[in-house]
Amino acid sequence: MKALLKTTISAACLLSAFSSMAANLKPAQIRAPLLYHLAEFTRFPADRLLKQKINMCFLETPPFAHAKELEKAKKVTVNDTPLDIIKLTSIDSISTSNCHLLFVSEPYESEQLIAQLQQINQKTLTVGESLSFVKDGGVMSIVPGNTTMKIVINMQQLKDSPFKINSAVVNLATLY
């Protein structure tokens, strides 16, 4: 119970801190830390962590704004597991990248990707940046709100996936 309370308070503080700073930051500067914290609050299937690292993939156009924000940290771990940041420029490279978490920028939210989401969601936690990504089968998105970013979760996709998201995050999210 104490751990749950700590997690809930941490998540609430994180979101409120971002809401007060949002006006001065670029979207990637807000989303990137949220992606990192989503990885912290996600339980990945044990068989997916055999290599003892978490691959956070970014399918976005160069200069990879979201990936660069996370690369600013010198050494990044998620719950004591090393985090590798992988930059992707094509949908075809997803299957060979062993992604645990895949961030998809809006230009890549294509029909080709949407057709593959059901399959991708079985091995990879998919996170977009638009509401349509969630509506089209992505697990979640981090979308602009009035004064901050908000997390939107497709509950059916989450239930059908092998990932477990901490209830504190689910409680703070908008559910679709």
Rank of each mutant, 00 (worst) to 15 (best):
S93A: 13
E129L: 02
L131I: 10
K159Q: 14
K2V: 15
Q116V: 07
F64T: 07
T42V: 09
L70R: 00
N79M: 15
T81C: 05
L117C: 03
F44D: 03
Q118D: 12
F41N: 08
C13S: 15
I86K: 05
Q52M: 14
R48S: 11
P45E: 05
V169L: 11
A67S: 14
A3N: 15
P162H: 10
A65V: 09
L83R: 00
D136Y: 09
K159W: 10
E69A: 09
N121R: 01
Q29R: 04
G138W: 01
G145L: 04
R48L: 12
S95K: 11
N171L: 08
K72R: 13
A22G: 10
K75W: 07
L38V: 15
R43C: 10
K51E: 14
G138H: 04
Q122C: 06
S93P: 03
Q156I: 07
I30P: 01
S19M: 08
A23S: 14
M155C: 06
P33Y: 14
L175D: 05
V169P: 00
P27R: 02
T42Y: 12
A3E: 12
L175Y: 06
L158M: 11
L59A: 08
L5I: 14
S130Y: 08
M155W: 03
M1F: 15
L158V: 05
G137Y: 02
L117N: 00
I151S: 00
S10I: 09
G137Q: 06
T148S: 12
I114R: 13
I9L: 12
V127S: 00
A73L: 13
G137N: 06
F18H: 08
T89L: 13
L14Q: 10
R31M: 04
Q119S: 13
A3W: 13
N79C: 11
E111V: 15
L70G: 00
Y36G: 07
I54Y: 00
A11I: 11
S105N: 10
T77W: 07
S167A: 15
S97W: 05
S16I: 04
V127R: 02
N166G: 09
M149S: 04
E71M: 15
A3Y: 12
